[in-house]
């Protein structure tokens, strides 16, 4: 079996145009996911009555559900119900207006909230109890302590795990071909479907994802060096 380099290049040029879309979807999902994830982590960490237990089960259930299933289920739910729900809410928008991309973002944001909530919860637990006490002892309220003392120490701890999540979600964008979003992998396969040169298509897509992962890792590595340096020995 031979590898058609020239054809691979042709696929590459097609697939590379989907990088902005892939990064855009990944970035929006991660941003939304980080916000919700932090929120869930705080509710669980502070054992807020009701919410704490609820999200414990919520996270357990969805952590154990394969990504492909979550995406397909979200898609089907939206496809079947969107128009009627929108109508009953008196909204004049339909499924077609929202677009597949946003469903993809929604599904990946959901998945990343779960992952981020775990990363942040672990990071919060890594900050020693005496940091809270020191903050309270100088007169800070819970919220003040959280913003000024706890989060600035916890967030750097979560950087390595957040990096894994970012890479996972970026690769996860490729699954969105299931819902008809034409991203890197799908564009490659499309280009190959005429001549059945799928090996080239897969290799090209893999190389692009590989490159993206390296860039993301570098960015997080930079953040880790930048912010982690201040708080060495966090559990002391």
């Amino acid at each position: 079996m031979s590898f058609d380099l020239e054809f691979a290049l042709e696929v590459f040029l097609k697939a590379i145009t989907k990088v902005p879309l892939t990064l855009g979807v990944a970035f929006s999902s991660l941003l939304i996911g980080a916000v919700f994830g932090l929120f869930i982590a705080l509710l669980r960490f502070y054992k807020v009555p009701g919410f704490g237990l609820f999200f414990r089960w919520f996270v357990t259930v969805f952590k154990g559900t394969p990504m492909v299933m979550l995406i397909s289920i979200t898609y089907l739910l939206v496809v079947y119900n969107f128009d009627s729900v929108a109508q009953s809410l008196g909204l004049s928008i339909t499924f077609k207006d929202v677009g597949k991309t946003w469903i993809g973002v929604g599904a990946l944001a959901f998945i990343s909230s779960i992952a981020f909530s775990e990363a942040f919860r672990g990071a919060l637990a890594a900050v020693s109890k005496c940091q809270y006490e020191a903050a309270y002892s100088v007169g800070e309220t819970r919220i003040q302590a959280l913003i000024h003392v706890i989060l600035p120490q916890a967030l750097p701890v979560s950087i390595p795990m957040s990096c894994n999540i970012a890479i996972g979600i970026t690769k996860g964008v490729s699954i969105l071909y299931l819902v008809g979003i034409i991203e890197i992998l799908y564009a490659s396969l499309q280009a190959a479907s005429r001549t059945y040169q799928f090996l080239e298509a897969y290799v090209v897509a893999a190389l692009i994802y590989w490159g993206l992962s390296i860039i993301i890792e570098q960015l997080f590595g930079f953040a880790e060096r930048r912010f982690g340096r201040k708080v060495r020995d966090i559990t002391a």
Binding site: C130, Q131, E133, S137, V138, G139, V149, V231, A236
Partner: peptide, 15 residues
């Protein structure tokens, strides 16, 4: 706000 504490293990803000 009317008290301050000096801790055995110092309790400085590590960040």
């Amino acid at each position: 706000l009317k008290t301050a504490m000096v801790f055995q293990t110092y309790g400085l803000f590590l960040n």
